[in-house]
Design a protein around this nucleic acid. Sequence first.
DNA 1: TCTGGGGTCCTAGGACCC
DNA 2: TCTGGGGTCCTAGGACCC
Length: 433
Amino acid sequence: MSILPFRLYGLLDCNSFFASCEKLFRPDLANKPVVVLSNNDGVVVARSLEAKKIGIPMGAAFFKIKHLLNAGKVHVFSSNFRLYGDISNRIMRLLQRWTPDIEVYSIDEAFMDLTGLGLNSERRIDFMYDITEQIKKWTGIPVSIGLGTTMTLAKVANDAAKKFGSCCDITDNEVREEILAKLPVGDVWGVGRKLKPKFERHSINTAADLAAVDPLWVRKNFSIVQEQLVRELNGEHCLDIHTAPAARKSIQVSRSFHDAVEDFQTLSESVASFAAKACEEARQDGTVASGVYVHVNTSRFRDSYYSAGSAIGFDCPTSHTPTVIHKALELLRQLFQPNQLYKRASVILLELRDAESVLSQGILFDTDTTRESKQRSRKLMQAVDNINSTFGKRSVVFGSQGIDREANAVSAKHYCSPSYTSSWDSLPVAKAK
DNA sequence: TCTGGGGTCCTAGGACCC
DNA sequence: TCTGGGGTCCTAGGACCC
């Protein structure tokens, strides 16, 4: 039995992030209810504090709250991921002023490993307030910080911080137990909608109940993941932050269609476009895929639900758009059933690997002709990427993607804010009188 | 009428081999 | 002929996260 070293983790989380971003350039909306909708103006994905207070639930279908918009009771935005990504990058860069050991966990969250900073309890408080105040001052985004001796406990602390202010330190055992006793088991990081009732059947209703069970019993009846969760809640360190972002293993591009699609031609243009976008991302990452998976489905909310997907491998790993489109459409032809109203399609590039190492392995076996043709393909893709990054998305497309200039014709985005921070045409204008 | 998008990890079960 | 254990690899499905 080894004595585990004392560790300290922090979790920074931006409050109502997407809604806060939208408020940044709209001072008139301060203290007003604001919600942000999902990609297709489908459901609510972010709510300002004021929107939460008037009872708009997370994930609410837009059509159910549209009356509030019409009555002027809430301000609605379509999602503007370029803006959110840009603001997120600024915040994450700033955070590294306090510690380089951060893991950007999501667009609005970052873990910090503070073990080496040797912060006593007084300095921990100063540390948290310093960060929240400075980030608010420099970016305008309100953030919360939680501190704990494991990542899971930092997450718990952050949850408490949001409820009781902006900062919370549960390093102290007594504080930790008090907070855990108040936290419903379903709100613990790693307990989702299926595990919650399963725990509750065993009278595990709070985080404190969960912390009190035998980890080995949990492993036997649940899995190793939940065993680690129990240990982490007790301050036993199982999870570590990853300061370098892990390479993606797959790239998924999928969309719901605003109006259902029935004909093969339209559906195939979408699938080709999704494949092209996925390939572009892979090339940006410097990766190649070993195969592609295509999925289509009709509306879940109708009786005749049809859902089908299939995968196919490539002869050699690639991110070459025409090759991937060709394979993806081959799959789509197998999956497509006439007289169905398709609501959604997705394309996933599978088993991504580093392009350079695949290239150096393959080159040994290539003939001169295949080597030349591969080089030509790469140059073509580079040219396509350059044109599209210089002149805007879809400046050049492949024939199978369709020539419809509005790639979003099938999706709705009626309430989008300008790209204030990423487009010269959309720079906010300030006037002095 | 209108219901998001993009990821990861673990497990169970089957195929196959020795 | 039948029987058995143990290992690996793959896939589908299920769970979670934001």
